[in-house]
């Protein structure tokens, strides 16, 4: 393989990986932006998304057959279902603690994460499940690099979701309310905004984006596992911090950047795939030290 081949290959890998990271990072960032909670359970939402997609697809594919014809409706259904799960979690676990000390709500988020992935573990007896996507490896070949249509559709779908989200935040009244709440929740309450409803909506949107990523990851990797959300949760958080936590374009950008960095980083002779996660977390720590506001983060008054 030539250098160019490697670059194209890693660019593709990085974009796909980055798409997953971005989609999950968005939920992290949105929730953080609105209620300043690091939702540790968000990676598990992604995992649950993959499993819900798996179950729905098992039914849908008997009706509509294999391939994207079955996957797309399954994905939309999974997004809806998991969106409601996110709202439910917010309602039961987080809302009672909104005004409690920060530590309490963080611990609850850890508890929610335990509940989610252990539930899936119990149901699946901890086994890997083959994701029945039924997609082939057709695609286009450039030099020594083969890019499948599946990969292209995924990057395309991510782009569509992001544009939709951007329009939702920028153009609708709900998006405006979200931005307003992230600036001053109490003022919004006084202005008659139904703050609880908007927070629930934020969880819905964030969770369904993570579910979309989960379903796509299932399709892409071909198998799913109860623990798949753990590392991506960390990576998505890293992405959100890279982009500037709380910033929506930042989360998109940060995810893609981390995906690319990781793909190219593991090509370095001294990194290697077994150290790939160490690479990402090392990056996170460096970033937090030198630029905690990220690329597009809102700069608050600098504290000494």
């Amino acid at each position: 393989m030539t250098i160019l081949d490697i670059i194209i290959q890693q660019l593709t890998n990085g974009l796909i990986l980055g798409s997953f990271y971005s989609l999950v990072a968005l939920g992290y960032s949105m929730v953080y932006g609105i209620i300043k909670l690091l939702n540790f359970a968000h990676g598990d939402i992604y995992m649950v998304g993959a499993f819900v997609g798996f179950v729905i697809l098992s039914f849908v594919s008997t009706l509509l057959g294999d391939g994207w014809l079955g996957i797309l409706p399954s994905m939309i259904l999974a997004m809806t279902a998991v969106g409601f799960l996110g709202v439910l979690i917010q309602r039961i676990a987080y809302r009672p603690l909104l005004s409690a000390p920060r530590l309490s709500i963080l611990i609850v988020a850890v508890g929610v994460s335990l509940v989610l992935f252990n539930s899936v573990m119990v149901v699946t007896i901890g086994e890997y499940k083959a994701f029945p996507s039924g997609l082939g490896y057709e695609g286009i070949t450039m030099g020594h690099v083969h890019i499948t249509y599946t990969q292209m559709v995924m990057v395309g779908a991510t782009a569509v979701l992001m544009i939709a989200l951007h329009l939702f935040i920028a153009k609708t009244i709900y998006g405006k309310a979200m931005r307003a709440i992230s600036i001053d929740m109490d003022a919004c309450r006084l202005m008659g905004i139904d703050v609880n409803k908007i927070i629930a909506l934020t969880f819905f949107v964030g969770s369904s984006l993570a579910a979309a990523a989960g379903v796509m990851a299932g399709v892409y990797y071909g198998s799913i596992h109860f623990f798949m959300g753990f590392v991506i949760g960390l990576k998505a958080f890293t992405s959100a911090v890279i982009g500037g936590i709380g910033s929506i374009p930042g989360a998109m950008l940060g995810g893609l950047l981390l995906g690319l960095l990781e793909s190219f980083g593991t090509q370095l002779p001294w990194v290697g795939t077994e150290w790939k996660d160490v690479f990402a977390f090392g990056l996170l720590i460096l970033l937090l030290v030198f630029k905690p506001t990220g690329i597009l983060g809102r700069t608050e008054i600098e504290r000494m």
Binding site: A100, S104, L114, V115, L116, M121
Partner: peptide, 19 residues
């Protein structure tokens, strides 16, 4: 095998009802 699941539920309930 549901041990950790129970722990998770207890963790959430503790923080909400008896922090």
């Amino acid at each position: 095998s549901v041990r950790m699941l129970v722990f998770g539920v207890v963790l959430v309930m503790m923080m909400i009802f008896r922090p």
